[in-house]
């Protein structure tokens, strides 16, 4: 992140592990807010529990509400409905938003509450020590699936789209410009918007899946990200192993 964005930050350093993608997402977030010239006084970040919940709280200089595990979207719903002038951005992880908080996520999308929900998806529970998440790829190793994950992961974009999200986008943190643009589109969407940022976790996912090199983990993740055009050429089995990236907007 350039020094020009430092006025958005409260603390000189973050608690993220070396190689974590969440710092890039934090940079994209504050850049999106900066480019939209959002009024910091009317900006509220809400997060749950987990590594991603630390992206806004305590790092970002604005109002922050660090809630309980899974509940960020429900807290945000109350704040937004009570004061519609607030721009409310939820930032949390895949385990927080899609497992324990899955019900709140789909209901907020159904209600079309004007929230931007940003999911930092590292495909594992990072903070608690590398357990399986509802987004962990089939067969991937984790602390609770030492023989490989037996269950299919959620496609979060399909999930929120099915629940009625007006705007949904998925980008890896290795593509910060489209990610930043997607965040800007989401924040300016007059309704429920969802952005999934694929953000690798070397400490837990990489280590447990024998990818000891951070750059190798990033290359591996980049390899699984395919555009919709490219995905069309893949077989269903191949597509199941990929993450389709881009914007997903109703025509």
């Amino acid at each position: 992140m350039t020094r020009a964005m430092e006025h958005w930050l409260r603390v000189p350093h973050t608690a993220f592990c070396p190689g974590c993608g969440h710092g890039i997402l934090m940079g994209a977030l504050v850049r999106a807010c900066d480019e939209l010239a959002l009024d910091r006084r009317q900006l509220l970040f809400v997060s749950g529990i987990g590594c991603a919940a630390w992206i806004p709280s305590p790092n970002i200089r604005a109002d922050t509400l660090h809630t309980l595990h899974g509940r960020a979207v429900a807290y945000a719903t109350g704040a937004k409905l009570a004061n519609p002038k607030l721009t409310v951005i939820v930032v949390s992880g895949d385990g927080d938003l899609a497992s324990i908080g899955g019900n709140h996520l789909i209901h907020a999308a159904r209600r079309d509450v004007p929230l931007t929900v940003v999911c930092a998806n590292n495909e594992i529970y990072g903070m608690t020590g590398g357990q399986t998440a509802p987004t962990t790829p089939l067969g991937a190793l984790s602390a609770t699936d030492p023989l490989g994950n037996r269950y299919r992961p959620f496609d979060l974009i399909a999930l929120v789209k099915g629940a009625g999200a007006r705007y949904a986008a998925r980008w890896p943190v290795t593509q910060p410009r489209p990610l930043t643009d997607a965040l800007k589109r989401a924040i300016t969407t007059p309704g429920f918007a969802f952005v999934e940022a694929i953000s690798p976790c070397p400490t837990q996912f990489g280590r447990r899946n024998r990818v000891d090199d951070v750059t190798k983990l990033y290359d591996q993740m980049a390899g699984t990200c395919v555009t919709r055009e490219a995905a069309r050429a893949l077989s269903p089995a191949e597509r199941a192993r990929c993450l389709v990236i881009g914007e997903f907007i109703d025509e």
């Binding site: 509220l44 809400v46 509400l65 809630t67 309980l68 509940r71 429900a74 807290y75 945000a76 719903t77 109350g78 704040a79 937004k80 409905l81 009570a82 004061n83 607030l86 019900n103 709140h104 209901h107 209600r111």
Partner: peptide, 23 residues
Amino acid sequence: VFVQMEDEIASFAAVIGASWAGA
């Protein structure tokens, strides 16, 4: 503002969020 939430956990969460938003 009145909102029927998806469960009691969410109801209480929304009330906390609304209280900090000034209601």
